[in-house]
């Protein structure tokens, strides 16, 4: 094995994905996020010194609004210094490898790295090179763990429990990192998950207790407690196998008519950005059941909890 690939033995925790994380860890994050939301995010003056003197870098090789901004704000609310580095305009354009970029940033003595990359596995690969915590800000089709956490938090906050909750995820599951993080996170918390997609977008090889897959959205709507609506990702080869936007909306779109068939207290989530009128209608987004803005707010609280847990250890 090339030495660069030997997994380093280290006590440092990273957040690379929700697959395999245990329930207690998730619960501790949710509790902490609740505290963050109550005590800091919800206050008119957001002051904490939990990460004072700490610095981390958002290293983003893909566009992002919500994730990058909320990581930056989460860090700042906790008193940390945050720097954003993007693939565009960095030395990556001069041919520097992602590893060298990360090693250079580490050499500047930062305390952590948030990484988003279009290739699955890059945060996990970087983690093997680095001595500082790596947080996966979304990698390829693999995982987007802080999105998974904020979805868990949003449902947990609204329902007080995730056990036996029935989550329906609809969209391009195969190419969705959000779907994978939601799937592992909700299963770990004792929820049931149904993946709904055109057949060619279902990851049929994954078989888990509590997990089901179908192409028929209308059959599962009435039994859903939560519907997570995924964005149709036109930039990610995912249009393959999809005949038309019109057909997508007709069969898998969360239209007003479909929203009416949900349980009274069912929640509707969307990780954003939305294609209004395709996977979700504007009228549905405006409904009380829609928790889209809670998700965004909770994204800050959840990321504060993650940053605090990974970088809030004692100094020196």
């Amino acid at each position: 094995m090339p030495s660069a690939w030997r997994k380093k033995e280290s006590a440092i925790n990273n957040l690379l994905g929700l697959e395999g994380v245990d329930r207690l860890f998730l619960e501790s994050l949710l509790e902490e996020a609740a505290g963050m939301k109550r005590d800091i995010v919800g206050k008119s003056r957001k002051k904490s010194t939990a990460l004072k003197g700490r610095a981390f870098v958002n290293l983003f090789f893909e566009p992002s609004t919500r994730t990058r901004t909320s990581f930056e704000l989460a860090g700042k609310y906790l008193g940390a210094d945050v720097v954003n580095v993007q693939g565009k305009g960095s030395s990556v354009e001069k041919g520097e490898t992602v590893y060298d970029t990360a090693l250079n940033i580490q050499a500047m003595q930062v305390d952590g790295l948030v990484v988003r990359h279009p290739a699955s596995g890059v945060p996990a690969q970087l983690q093997a090179y680095l001595d500082i915590p790596v947080i996966n800000g979304g990698d390829g089709f693999h995982e987007h763990p802080t999105q998974g956490l904020l979805d868990l938090f949003t449902v947990w906050e609204a329902r007080q429990s995730l056990r036996d909750c029935h989550l329906v995820i609809v969209g391009d599951i195969l190419h969705s990192r959000v779907a994978r993080s939601d799937l592992w996170g909700f299963l770990a918390m004792g929820a049931h998950v149904t993946l709904v997609a055109p057949a060619i977008w279902l990851p049929t090889e994954i078989r888990e207790t509590g997990l089901e897959m179908t192409s028929n959205l209308d059959n599962v709507l009435a039994a859903a407690d939560v519907v997570q609506v995924l964005r149709i990702q036109k930039e990610r080869r995912s249009m393959r196998g999809m005949p038309s936007v019109e057909e997508y909306r007709a069969r898998w779109g969360i239209t007003e008519e479909r929203a009416q068939r949900l349980k009274q207290d069912a929640l509707i989530l969307h990780p954003g950005p939305q294609n209004r009128g395709v996977e979700i209608d504007s009228a549905v987004m405006a409904q009380k059941a829609s928790k889209i803005w809670d998700q965004v707010e909770n994204g800050v609280a959840v990321r504060m909890a993650v940053l605090r847990q990974l970088m809030g250890g004692s100094h020196e």
């Binding site: 699955s120 089709f141 693999h142 990851p203 049929t204 994954i206």
Partner: peptide
């Protein structure tokens, strides 16, 4: 086109084309 691995369990878990 674009594929890195066999279309099976590992691909679906790791999110690889």
């Amino acid at each position: 086109d674009g594929a890195s691995v066999h279309e099976g369990l590992a691909a679906h878990r790791l999110g690889l084309p």
